[in-house]
Amino acid sequence: MLEWLGMPVAASAHAGQVDFIMVLVHWLMLVLFVGWSAFFFYVLVRFRRRANPVATHAGLQGSWSTWVEGGVLVAEVALLAFFSIPAWSARVDAFPAETQSTVVRVVAEQYAWNVHYPGADGRFGRTTLQLLGPDNPLGLDRADPTAKDDITTINQLYLPVDKPVIVHLSSKDMIHSFALPQMRVKQDVIPGIPQPVWFTPRQTGQWEIACSQLCGLGHYRMRGFYTIQTQAEYDAWLAEETALLATP
């Protein structure tokens, strides 16, 4: 059924699991809808006025409707307990260690995604509201020693494949929502409440970051790009950016 649903390519480690649940739910929906509809149309034809001029006061006898309703309940509980809750738990509880992951900050604003890499030292430099400016949308304090090697980009997120990624999300102004459709990742970015989100890319490619929460008149154009590369390509990109930092 997955191909009928027409979802974007599933390019992360957990995407298959999300899609599997999606398929299960849609099967349940389909079965229920077809079942109900079949009964519905049968009854409409069988008990139309011409075919059944006198209605029966008692109506339908028997308890099989209770069984159907019970069955729906059981199916829902199973979906919940065996699929949705464990999968959710893996998303929000089982974060990988930062040392084993690519760690990156993404700061949303009207209407752009500011990307902040910690650089070789693995530590994010200090940012402050006072330093905000057109050339420094993050307000990064280059005087801070940990900030010297930090790499920043706008609307361009580069990540290596087959290694867990942790994105620390925050917002400068409104509520945005950070969506990577091919990764099956979406997380509201709420000002004042930083949120991490993690996933493991399994395919290389270039796709789009979509803002999924109305954030103002430019919401429709708050579009970024993310590129999943091989480790070698990614390292080369990092080296290139680091070299650019050295030449002012």
Partner: peptide, 9 residues
């Protein structure tokens, strides 16, 4: 839906 069953619609 079950109310329809047995009716004279």
């Amino acid at each position: 839906i079950l109310s329809l069953y047995g009716g004279s619609i």
